[in-house]
Every structure is written in C-alpha cells, then in structure tokens.
C-alpha cells in the first residue's frame, strides 16, 4: 500500500523531481570544481541574475512570445489550408510536395539575411522565420490525415450523394484533428526556435538578442536566464496545446486514460 502510494507520487511528479535533481547536481558541480561564473554559472547565480534583471528579461521575453505566436498563427493557417489542398488532391500533392520537402531542408538561419534585406531587422523577420520553420509539420500532418481516409468511409458518404466538401467537413477534417493537434505541439516549439534564431542574427529586441548581447559582455548568468525563460515558455505553450488536444480529440486517445 505504502509502496504503491510512493510510486504513484513519483510517477506524478517525475518531471519536477528530475529537474530538481539536475539543478542540485549542476550547483554541486559548479561549486565543487569552482567553475568561474563567466564560463558556467551555477543555478543560484542564474536565478539571481534572473531576479535582478527581470524587467529587461520580461520585456524581451514578451517580444519573443509575440513574434513566436504571430508566426505560429500564420503557420497554422497556412499549413492547414495547403495541407487540405495537398491531402485532398493528388495533383496538388504531386506538384507541391517535393518542393515543400526541399524548402524544409534549407536551414532557416540561412534564410534570415534574405529576410533582413527585404524587411529590415526586428519583428518582421522574426515572425517570418518562426512561420517558415513551423508550418511544415502542420502541413504534412493535415495532408497525411486527409489522404489516409479509409476508402470505405468515403464510399459510404458518396453513396449518400455527399459532395467533396461534405466529405471534407463531416469525415476528413474531424478525422484529421488528432494529426493536426499533434503537429501543433511540434510546431509551437519550432516556432520558438525560429524567432530566437532570427533575433540572434538580426534584431535589437527579444530573448535571442538579449542572449547575444549578454554573451558578448561575458554575462553568462543572463544568457542562461534567457535560455531557461525560452525553455519555460516552450513547455508552457506545449502543455497548452496538449491540453487542447486532449479536449478536442479525446476519442482518439481513449487508451491512454489510465496513464494520464
């Protein structure tokens, strides 16, 4: 009884516990080996820096969150629309897919200078980079969900005289929702990567810029604080979409109820 209770507690708080263990270990290493702060600051130092300069950090963090979310929103709309076209038309699939794969293989950081020439530095390239890096998983998943529709299901609807649009609305899209929400979780984390990359290269606002500036003045504690803030925002957004996913597509995950 007591053992199973403890195990349950462990499973429930596993992620927090692991984090605490790692932080303690990190602190221990830094203190025991007396690593200089400008190389690798201990968690307490990072925390200190974070609290001391929370105003600056939060300003930059909000900027990053803003560009990420705008870029992500465009990516979702774009990915959903193009994914629907790719998934429901073999012609569009044939025409577009190879190009999309090719485009997705280009490292987006290589694209940022182009965006800067076109749009100047700052918010716009960050939004666009976030968009460019995160639309692909949405597109692929929506297309996959639509194109793997069971032919019998389609036959059932077609034999009722359903139009293509009917089939899309009644069967295609609801069936694609689990794929779609799964892709949102991937896309939002990628969107953070995109906007931070762009800010690092070409901006004077945002966490990416903050970290760049801090590292050039050897302020490692601030760099790490920035890293942690990005990580935390990523996890927060991920959890938000995981929750939405559960709400809207519970029918697809019925087996995992016992674990969650």
């Amino acid at each position: 009884m007591a053992i199973s209770k403890r195990k349950k507690f462990l499973v429930k708080h596993a992620s927090w516990l692991l984090m605490i263990v790692l932080l303690v270990f990190w602190e221990f290493i830094c203190r025991a080996l007396q690593v200089p702060q400008f190389l690798f600051p201990a968690p307490t130092a990072v925390l200190e820096a974070g609290i001391a300069r929370w105003e600056i950090i939060s300003m930059h963090a909000l900027q990053t969150l803003y560009t990420t979310l705008v870029g992500f929103a465009i990516a979702v709309a774009f990915g959903l629309l193009v994914g629907m076209a790719v998934g429901s038309s073999p012609l569009v699939y044939r025409a577009l897919y190879p190009m999309m794969v090719g485009f997705n293989s280009i490292p987006k950081v290589a694209f940022v200078p182009v965006l800067v020439v076109w749009f100047g530095i700052g918010t716009v390239p960050a939004i666009l980079t976030a968009f460019l890096i995160s639309f692909f998983p949405v597109l692929v998943n929506v297309a996959t969900g639509l194109s793997t529709l069971e032919p019998e299901l389609e036959d059932v609807l077609r034999s009722m005289g359903a139009s293509k649009l009917d089939i899309l609305r009644k069967v295609g899209l609801p069936r694609t929702m689990p794929y779609f929400f799964a892709s949102l979780k991937v896309a939002i984390t990628l969107a953070f990567v995109g906007s931070v990359i762009s800010e690092t290269v070409a901006s004077n606002l945002g966490i990416g810029y903050l970290m760049m500036a801090a590292s050039s003045s050897m302020d490692m504690a601030l760099v790490f604080a920035g890293l942690i803030v990005i990580g935390a925002m990523g996890v927060g957004m991920y959890e938000l979409f995981a929750l939405t996913e559960k709400r809207f597509t519970g029918w697809a995950n019925r087996g995992s109820g016992g674990v969650a």
Binding site: E152, V156, R158, S159, M160, K170, R175, T249, W251, A252
Partner: peptide, 18 residues
C-alpha cells in the same frame, strides 16, 4: 455518377469514432 439515395454497409462498420 454517385447515386443519391442508396444505403450501404460493409464488413467493417465504418462508424465515425468521434
């Protein structure tokens, strides 16, 4: 073209899980 008023059922029930 597809008929308007036919009922169809297959070996798999093809019910929509949602």
């Amino acid at each position: 073209g597809p008929q308007k008023c036919i009922g169809m059922a297959f070996q798999a029930s093809n019910l929509l899980p949602w």
